[in-house]
């Protein structure tokens, strides 16, 4: 009897592990599934700026936004992540990657060797990117200078350091974006929705997160405690920005200046370095979309003394 029970337990464990393995299996993109594509480098540069690649991947403490050697630490409640080298260096960067591997990394958060990336890399937002945009981005990054040197390993504690578990996290929290195409809205609104939700990944910081680090969907864009530590990320729904005109928003994205003359600081200063490179049309589209966000009450900010 005992023997039969223990056999049963072993079988159950094997099945449970198989289910876990299946649930956490990284998705792949086969090279053959990508249709022919002539890269548009100008669009690749726009995608690069809209997606804010340089904010994390450019070498810290220097001015050149195209040196993508990585190394910037990103602190979080789960540990410290270090942005990797995504320059075209063949040894330390992504110089040997195929286009399909790059698409898989950006859109599915899976590395060339089939491991899940930590969602500190905002592939949850990039998941909705147009494949042509990602391919243009790849072509653009390939034109940038190779930078040698690897970033430090992520300093993340158990159990968050088990990458396979991120497969479960993805099942819970990926694909939770609002639809970014709405035929009833203007092309400008649709472009803005795409830039804000997908490439700009604004919700990644401007939304509160639950204990597992997933965005609380009902309070998307309603601000919350700064995931990087001190301070508070503002609510960018109309609850907080009703006083801002479209023009104020577009101007802020261009100049970093708030309507009252205050200026962007902290991580937002780095975001403005990206948005100031976009076209005036793209900034106007982002403003139109942001103005359309219904007022949502965010988490309550503790009163400071």
């Amino acid at each position: 009897m005992a023997r039969r029970l223990s056999l049963f337990a072993v079988a159950l464990a094997i099945v449970a592990f198989a289910v876990y393995w299946w649930l956490t299996m990284p998705s792949t993109v086969a090279a053959g599934t990508l249709p022919a594509h002539t890269p548009d480098l100008a669009n690749g540069k726009t995608v690069f700026n809209a997606a804010g690649c340089a904010s994390c991947h450019a070498v810290p403490n220097q001015q050149d936004r195209t040196r993508l050697g990585g190394g910037l630490p990103l602190t979080s409640p789960f540990g410290t992540f270090y942005a990797p080298n995504i320059s075209p260096d063949p040894n330390d960067g992504i110089g040997q990657w195929t286009e399909a591997q790059f698409v898989k990394a950006v859109v599915h958060g899976v590395s060339p060797d089939g491991a899940h990336y930590f969602p500190a890399f905002p592939y949850t937002s990039y998941h909705g990117a147009k494949i042509a945009d990602v391919r243009d981005l790849f072509a653009y990054i390939k034109t940038l200078p190779p930078v040698s040197g690897k970033a430090p390993d992520h300093a993340v504690g158990f159990p968050f350091n088990i990458r396979r578990n991120i497969g479960i996290w993805k099942l819970l929290f990926m694909d939770r974006q609002p639809p970014v195409m709405d035929a009833a809205r203007s092309p400008q609104w649709n472009r803005g929705a795409y830039l804000v939700n997908v490439l700009g990944h604004c919700a990644e910081c401007h939304s509160p997160r639950n204990m597992l680090g997933g965005i609380i969907t009902a309070q998307r864009f309603a601000g919350g405690p700064n995931p990087e530590g001190k301070g508070w990320v503002p609510n960018i729904t109309q609850k907080n920005l009703a006083d801002w005109s479209d023009k104020d928003l577009a101007y802020f994205l261009e100049s970093g200046l708030l309507p009252d003359g205050d200026s962007a600081g902290g991580s937002m200063a780095s975001v403005i370095k990206n948005t100031s490179q976009l076209s005036a049309d793209d900034r106007a589209a982002m403003a139109v979309y942001l103005k359309s966000l219904p007022a949502v009450e965010g988490p309550k900010r503790p009163q400071s003394k």
Binding site: E254, S255, G256, S263, A264, G266, A269, S276
Partner: peptide
């Protein structure tokens, strides 16, 4: 925007 960038450059 040139001046704005200077403000943010320090406030960052």
């Amino acid at each position: 925007p040139v001046l704005g960038k200077q403000c943010s450059g320090c406030h960052e």
